[in-house]
Simulated scan of single mutants.
Amino acid sequence: MNIGVMGAGAVGCFFGGLLARAGHAVTLVGRPALVEAARAQGLRLQMKDGFDGPVAIGAATGPEALADADLVLFCVKSADTEATGRAMLPHLKPGAVVLAMQNGVDNAERLAAVLGRPVVPVVVYVATDMAGPAHVRHHGRGDLILGTGPDSERVAEVLRAAGIPASVSLGVTAALWDKLIINCAYNAVSAVAQVPYGAMVAVPEVRALMADVVAEAVAVARGQGIAVADDILDRVMALASAMPGQFSSTAQDLARGKRSEIDYLNGHVVRQGAALGIATPANGALLALVKLLEAKAG
């Protein structure tokens, strides 16, 4: 397939790299430094399983590079969803399948409104970071849950053939909320303290704060009719054991002086809670702290 990656950060480069390694014609759309490095030496894909090598891959700075794409991995930050969607709209093939592979729960809906066509929501479970221009480093997992659509099963087969565990689920909305709740518990605290998950949960007061954050988010989700499993707190806490050295994406953004996605994580819970009349003080405090750090950084 011809595959485009819109937003070639750590997530886009990781999955794009795996698809390119499997033989697909992949083009990363990203910043000039990444494009220059990828064109010069390929994408360095450093896997947790030991693989570490260059992968031949296309790269460009503009959405016109998506013109031949049969499949688009849409991996931009949540705040950029609408603007990026408008920019790539004139360049999409009529039959191209678009996967919204982002944090948050409403990106696929927002993107579909801009594009005027269906967008497949995807839950992404992966720990990655960018170690340098066109150098993606894999720390764990790498599985995807796709929402249902006319092409979802076919796309999932392509992903699986490239070594990417992918499934299609009618319960993708609940899965998106599960991930949102996990992100709400970890991302802001990791960002404010600039510590990895293992160090976070070693502090009893942080564990208590995380439990409050989860309880508020669960109440909001259930208030919207979303089924959240009773063991969600246990699964949230178990993540630190699986990825003790991982820094959240919000922590990585702030460390690099970039705008975070906090408005679409804890901020989403706060806004939806207000609409439902559900108090969310723990999420609100974390939202305020991250926004303060963003303001301080300018």
Rank of each mutant, 00 (worst) to 15 (best):
M1Q: 09
M1A: 11
G16A: 04
A22C: 01
H24S: 06
H24P: 11
H24V: 09
H24T: 07
H24M: 04
V35T: 08
A37E: 03
G42K: 09
R44K: 14
K48V: 11
G50P: 07
V55D: 02
A59V: 02
A65F: 05
A69R: 05
A69T: 08
F74K: 03
V76A: 05
T81G: 04
T81W: 09
T84A: 09
A87P: 11
P90W: 08
H91T: 04
K93P: 08
P94I: 07
G95K: 06
A96Y: 05
V97G: 02
M101V: 00
M101R: 00
G104E: 01
V114I: 13
L115E: 05
R117K: 13
A127R: 06
A131E: 14
V136M: 00
R137F: 03
D143S: 12
L146V: 11
L146W: 08
D151N: 13
S152C: 12
V155N: 01
V155T: 04
E157R: 14
E157D: 15
I164P: 01
S167C: 09
S169F: 03
A174K: 07
L176P: 15
W177Y: 09
W177R: 09
K179D: 08
C184H: 14
N187A: 07
N187F: 09
V189E: 07
Q194I: 03
P196T: 09
A199R: 10
M200G: 03
V203G: 02
R207V: 12
L209V: 13
A211P: 13
D212H: 10
D212L: 12
V218D: 00
A221Y: 03
I226C: 09
D231M: 06
I232V: 11
R235I: 01
V236T: 05
A242T: 13
G245P: 10
G245T: 14
S249C: 14
A251W: 15
Q252L: 15
Q252F: 15
A274H: 15
I278S: 07
A279W: 15
P281Y: 13
N283F: 10
A285G: 13
A288F: 06
A288D: 08
L293M: 12
L293V: 07
A295E: 08
G298D: 08
G298R: 04
